[in-house]
Computed example of a mutant assay.
Amino acid sequence: MRKQLKKFVISIVACTTLLVSGLGMSNINAKADISDQDFAQAYDVAQDKLGSSYVYGAVGPNVFDCSGFTSYVYKKALNVQLPRTAQAQYNDSKRVSAKNADKGDLVFFGSSRSNVYHVGIYVGNGKMIDAQNRGVVTENINAPWWNLVGYGKLA
């Protein structure tokens, strides 16, 4: 009986430890506002990947799709874990208007709020860094091939 109780207590402690340590990795570990220093770190990581190739579903470190790129940048720069897809990142972000968007916010594109298929990182002055069919590039947000859905702060 004593051995069973000891095994039970050890099991509970182990499960609790796994659960608590896993929470930071399974949930979005993010901030609502990115500081200038945080943005500078993320921007450095993003710029370092300029010219990397695009492959649908790729998550880095040298080949990306759009949401794989944003996830990689924030994980590497700030240890912030984002959801895997552009739609999930949109769903988990706090919407902001274009005039209230800050450097480091995410920029979302699609046919509607329920069909977001592209994401980039806002870098200011109407530009973003994103991974798309030309690879990782800096480009204008208002381009004829994108339908802007909105901006989001990491939430």
Rank of each mutant, 00 (worst) to 15 (best):
D38H: 04
F64D: 07
T70H: 02
V9H: 06
Y43D: 15
Q81P: 00
I12N: 11
T16V: 15
S52K: 03
F69K: 03
N27G: 03
K49L: 04
D38R: 03
Y72A: 01
K7D: 14
Y43A: 09
V73W: 05
S11K: 06
I12F: 05
A30E: 11
V45T: 08
V13D: 08
S21N: 09
R84M: 04
L50H: 05
M25W: 07
L5M: 12
S67Y: 05
S21H: 00
A46H: 01
V9A: 14
D65N: 06
G68N: 08
G22A: 04
K31H: 13
D48P: 00
V20G: 02
F64C: 06
F64A: 10
S52T: 08
F39Q: 05
Y74L: 04
G22M: 07
V73H: 04
G60L: 03
Q41D: 12
M25N: 10
Y74E: 10
K49D: 01
K76N: 11
L19Q: 03
G51L: 03
K49F: 00
A86M: 01
K6E: 13
K75H: 10
S35M: 06
G57F: 03
V9S: 09
L19A: 09
S53E: 13
S71T: 01
A42F: 01
L82I: 05
D65L: 02
N62I: 00
K49W: 00
S35Q: 07
V9R: 10
S67W: 01
K7I: 13
L50F: 04
V80R: 11
A46S: 02
S26V: 12
I12V: 15
G51M: 07
A32F: 04
S67E: 08
V80W: 12
K7Y: 11
F8W: 07
V73S: 09
Y74N: 06
G68S: 09
L18R: 02
L78F: 02
V55L: 14
T16W: 05
G68A: 05
N29P: 00
T85Q: 01
L50P: 08
T70Q: 10
R2Q: 14
A30M: 10
D48E: 12
T70I: 06
L19G: 12
